[in-house]
């Protein structure tokens, strides 16, 4: 569940970075346009992987239900962070995805 939530969070951060108004909120320096073009496909890729993972871990019925729960929590967290602590979002995304990757490999 935590893995799902953190992966969802990272995917959402990528979506966020693909949108100009939010990217300016989160990152101070300029990002090359080429990199920006990759954010959205990457986000979809990560989201599909998370969906696959949820089904793989919990089965066809429970998996998607938990995925939506994880998405809700991730978006709520991201929205609040964007408003109050926008600058820590990229760092948190990196930390969370690292935790997720490690726990996937452990289990």
């Amino acid at each position: 569940m935590l893995v799902l939530t953190s992966l969802c969070f990272t995917a959402m951060v990528l979506f966020c970075l693909a949108m100009t108004k939010h990217r300016e909120q989160v990152i101070v320096h300029e990002v090359s346009i080429l990199a920006v073009h990759f954010f959205r496909p990457l986000a979809w890729l990560l989201l599909s992987f998370t969906a696959y993972l949820s089904v793989d871990m919990y089965g066809w019925s429970i998996g998607p239900a938990l995925l939506f729960g994880a998405l809700t929590i991730a978006i709520l967290l991201l929205t609040l962070l964007l408003t109050y602590r926008a600058k820590i979002v990229p760092k948190l995304a990196i930390v969370m995805s690292l935790i997720a990757i490690i726990s996937i490999f452990i289990s």
Binding site: M12, L71, I75, T79
Partner: peptide
């Protein structure tokens, strides 16, 4: 999708209502 402006009065309430509706 991720927009929540902590504004006062009407726009703030509208954002709160939108965010709570959309995320879940």
């Amino acid at each position: 999708f991720f927009t929540f402006r902590a504004k006062k009065g009407l726009p703030g309430w509208l954002d709160i209502h939108n965010v709570l509706s959309v995320i879940a």
